[in-house]
C-alpha cells in the first residue's frame, strides 16, 4: 500500500541543517499493522507526517497505492487525505468548540456526504467506540480515554484504508491505553492498514511488524508472530 524509497527530509535554519530523514526506504502492505519505534528526534513523526501527506519530503519517492504522490500539490494531497487516511494523535486534537458528534462528523462534511448518511455513519461509529451516550458533550467534558476514543471514531468514520496513529496512548493511563489499542487492532483485523508511532514496547506488540529508527534511518525491523 505504501512504498517509500530514498526519502530525505532536511530541516534548515540559517546555520544549522538537521537531517530528519536520511534516504529512508520502507514499505507497508495492505492490511498490515506496523509500529515505528525509536528515540525522540529519530524522525519517526516526520515519517508519519510525510506518509499522512501533512508534510513533504525533499527528495525520494513515495508511492501511495502504487501512485507517486511526492509531487502532489496541496489540493490533491487534501483530497487524497480525506478519502484514504484517518489520523489519531497523542494529544487527541479534538476541536474544543465542537461536540463529540460534530467532531466525528467533520471528515464526512469535508467529503460532502449528505446529512442522513452522515448521521447513520457517525452514530454507528460512536456506538462502536462506546461513547454514544456522550455525543452531545464537548471534548473538555470528557476523560482522556473518552477523548481518544472520540478521536479514533473521527479517524475511522470515513472508512479510511489507512490509519496513522502518533503515540495514541501517550496521554492515557494503561487501562484506557489498552482499550484504544484494542480498537486499533479490531480495525486492523477488519482490513484497515495501521501505521503507529510509539515509544511503548507494550503497544508495539499489538503490531505485526516493528520498524526501528535512529537518526533518520531504519536500523532494524522485527516481524512479530
Amino acid at each position: 500500500m505504501l512504498k517509500i524509497t530514498n526519502l530525505e527530509k532536511i530541516y534548515r535554519t540559517e546555520d544549522i541543517e538537521t537531517v530528519a530523514l536520511n534516504k529512508i526506504s520502507a514499505d507497508v502492505k495492505n492490511g498490515e499493522f506496523v509500529a515505528i519505534m525509536g528515540p525522540s528526534g529519530c524522525g519517526k513523526s516526520t515519517l508519519l507526517n510525510i506518509i499522512g501527506l501533512l508534510d513533504d519530503a525533499d527528495t525520494g519517492s513515495f508511492l501511495f497505492n502504487n501512485e507517486e504522490v511526492i509531487s502532489y500539490n496541496e489540493r490533491k494531497r487534501a483530497d487524497l487525505r480525506k478519502r484514504n487516511i484517518g489520523f489519531v494523535f497523542q494529544s487527541f486534537n479534538l476541536i474544543d468548540e465542537l461536540t463529540v458528534y460534530e467532531n466525528v462528523e467533520l471528515p464526512l462534511l469535508y467529503l460532502g456526504i449528505d446529512a442522513d448518511e452522515r448521521k447513520k455513519r457517525v452514530e454507528a461509529v460512536l456506538e462502536k467506540v462506546q461513547i454514544m451516550h456522550r455525543r452531545n458533550h464537548f471534548p473538555q467534558q470528557l476523560s482522556g480515554g473518552q477523548q481518544q476514543r472520540c478521536a479514533v471514531a473521527r479517524a475511522v468514520v470515513n472508512n479510511p484504508k489507512l490509519i496513522l496513529a502518533d503515540e495514541p496512548t501517550g496521554n492515557l493511563d494503561s487501562k484506557n491505553g489498552n482499550e484504544v489499542m484494542e480498537l486499533l487492532t479490531d480495525l486492523n483485523s477488519n482490513g484497515t492498514t495501521v501505521v503507529m508511532v510509539t515509544h511503548s514496547e507494550h503497544d508495539a506488540r499489538y503490531a505485526h511488524r516493528i520498524i526501528r529508527m535512529l537518526d533518520g534511518q531504519v536500523v532494524m525491523e522485527n516481524v512479530l508472530s
Binding site: G52, L54, E74, R75, A78, D79, R81, K82, R83, F87, N93, L94, I95, D96, E97, L106, P107, Y110, L111, R154
Partner: peptide, 16 residues
C-alpha cells in the same frame, strides 16, 4: 491554530 491543523488533517482545503 489547533483547529486549523485538525481541519487540514481531516482534509479541509485552504479555500474551505
Amino acid at each position: 491554530s489547533k483547529e486549523v491543523g485538525v481541519r487540514k488533517v481531516m482534509g479541509s482545503s485552504r479555500g474551505q
